[in-house]
Structure formats: C-alpha cells, structure tokens
C-alpha cells in the first residue's frame, strides 16, 4: 500500500469513528431509532462521502454532483451524520433527530435536508429512484454517477428486482448499488425469515456486474468503487459483507438492536468502545 493510500485509509477510519459516535449520540438523545443497520453501513457511507462522491456542500444542488440514495431509509442517522461531517448541515443539528419540528425526520425527507437525494423509509423503493436519476443523467449528457444503498432484508421486496431488471435492460452503467449484507432483519436472520440468497448469482443473472467485498474494509471498498467506475455497459452491484451493529460489542450481530435506542449506561459503554473522533476532512475536497 502506498503512503498516500495509507493516509487516506487512516483518515477514513477516523471519520468512521466520528460518524459512529454521532450515530450513538443522536439515537440516545432521540430515545428511538435504528442503531444496528446504521452502524453496519458506516464504512460504506464514509467511503462514499469522503472519497467517492463528487459533491459541493456549499452547492447541494450542483447539477453534476454524484447522487447517493439511502434506500434502507431507517439508517437515516448515518446519512445525517455523514452530511454533517461533510458540511451539508450543522453538526449541532444532529441532536434534533426525530424531535417535533426537526428537519431530521425519522426517515430521510427529500427537499427538507440539503444533501438528501430522495425520500426513503418505505423499503424497496430506492433502487428505482436511483435508476430514474441515472437515466436522466444519461439523457442530459451529465457524467454524474448514482449510488444506492440497499439492505439485505430489503432485498425481499419485489420492487428491488423489478428495478434490477430495468437497470440491466437500460444498461445503466452509471448506476452502482451497494448491498449491506449483515445477515439480519427485524424478525431474525434473513435466511430464517425469508431467504433472499444467493445474492451474487441472483444479481448476475439479472444482468449486473457483481463484486463481493468486506464492507468494513476501506481498501476493499475503495477498490470496488474504482472497479464500478470502469463498467459502462451494465449496472454494478457491490455486495458488502458487514456486521449489524458494528463497533459496539453488545449490538453486534444482535437482531434485538435493529430498532431500539441505547439507554444512558449503554450509551456510555458504546461511546467508550468507539473512542473519540478527530477533524479529518476527507480527500475529495477537489470538488469544493
């Protein structure tokens, strides 16, 4: 690994730590919300916001920006934390999550929060919206890329596969989906509730280019995002193996932590386990 690469990955790790800390604090303050699936996607979303996406936080509507759509909208705290760390919204606002009158709704609302690219929360709909946005970009001859984050339980929705079929049919090479493959949904392991496996074969047979990565390994993730950019004639799927609740020992691999906030004691323990973040700004400042 080069020195530059080392520095980037170190920086991303620090950023991920800060975002995990934000998530725990937000949920503790809100006293409700979804820690498990927010924590499992931290590295994926950090890599996107601090390395992959071309964005201008001072111009959230910049027409050539890359788009990120959080299809698994219940991970809203993660999205808001990333947007705050990336300068789209004030960090102080994070603690208003889920409170009456806040912009930071329980599920991401389009048009209310700068940087939120689609309203999600009803599972299974993000990939379709990503596809429409990608096809519009092609029509307008803009070279932005569209990224959509899906849950593995969410993949049980039929609409996901309707979108998969359509994206391949229209050869949406500017569309990349990432699957947070943490193996759990609300009622238990995905294989026990309603198995959507095997993922790689399904996506390949639907006409997608597929790559499998460790969803907590930045090197792996960055290589996969670089790979996705080289594919122009079909949509690409990055299947990211993750751990639900990653980074907080008692939340890891525990379905019970899907949608429940930590109490004060649990919050203290979680924050101690995560450790403090610093001020890393990411390496994609070139877009600013």
């Amino acid at each position: 690994m080069s020195e530059v690469q080392d520095e980037l990955i170190g920086g991303l790790q620090t950023k991920a730590q800060a975002i995990r800390e934000d998530i725990i604090k937000m949920l503790a303050e809100a006293r409700s919300g979804h820690p498990g699936g927010s924590l499992s996607s931290v590295e994926i979303v950090t890599a996107l916001y601090f390395h992959v996406l071309r964005l201008k936080s001072e111009d959230p509507q910049w027409p050539d920006r890359d788009r990120f759509i959080l299809s698994k909208g219940h991970a809203a705290p993660l999205l808001y934390a990333a947007l705050a760390e990336r300068g789209f919204i004030p960090r102080e606002e994070l603690l208003t999550l889920r409170k009456l009158g806040t912009r930071l709704q329980g599920h991401p609302p389009w048009g209310m929060v700068p940087g939120v690219e689609a309203s999600t929360g009803s599972l299974g709909q993000g990939l379709s919206m990503g596809l429409g946005t990608a096809l519009a970009g092609r029509l307008d001859r803009r070279n932005y890329r569209v990224y959509v984050l899906l849950g593995d339980g969410e993949s049980q929705e039929g609409q996901v596969w309707e979108a998969a079929m359509a994206a391949a049919h229209y050869r949406a090479g500017n569309l990349t989906a990432v699957l947070d493959f943490n193996g759990l949904q609300i009622d238990g392991p995905i294989t026990e509730v309603m198995s959507p496996l095997p993922f790689p074969d399904k996506w390949r047979s639907f006409g997608w280019a597929v790559r499998e990565v460790d969803g907590h390994d930045f090197q792996d993730l960055i290589a996969a995002f670089d790979w996705a950019k080289t594919i122009h004639d079909m949509p690409s799927m990055i299947i990211a193996r993750t751990v639900k609740g990653k980074g907080v020992s008692f939340m890891e691999n525990a379905a019970g932590w899907h949608g429940k906030a930590p109490d004060m004691k649990q919050t203290a323990q979680a924050l101690a386990e995560i450790g403090a973040g610093t001020d890393f700004k990411g390496d994609n400042k070139h877009a600013e």
Partner: peptide
Amino acid sequence: DADLSGSTKTKDFGKNYPDRFFNMGIAEQ
C-alpha cells in the same frame, strides 16, 4: 406477517402454531 411479527404481536401465534404461521419477509404485496 411481513418481518414485523414482534411489533404486530403475531409472533406468539407463530410460537404456538408454527405450521400455521408464515413470515413472508419484507414483501407485503
């Protein structure tokens, strides 16, 4: 049920009558 049996409380029916309970996953249609 559709992956919300703990919230809708159909879970107990599932425990008592496992062969008459069907968790269909996140697929309401």
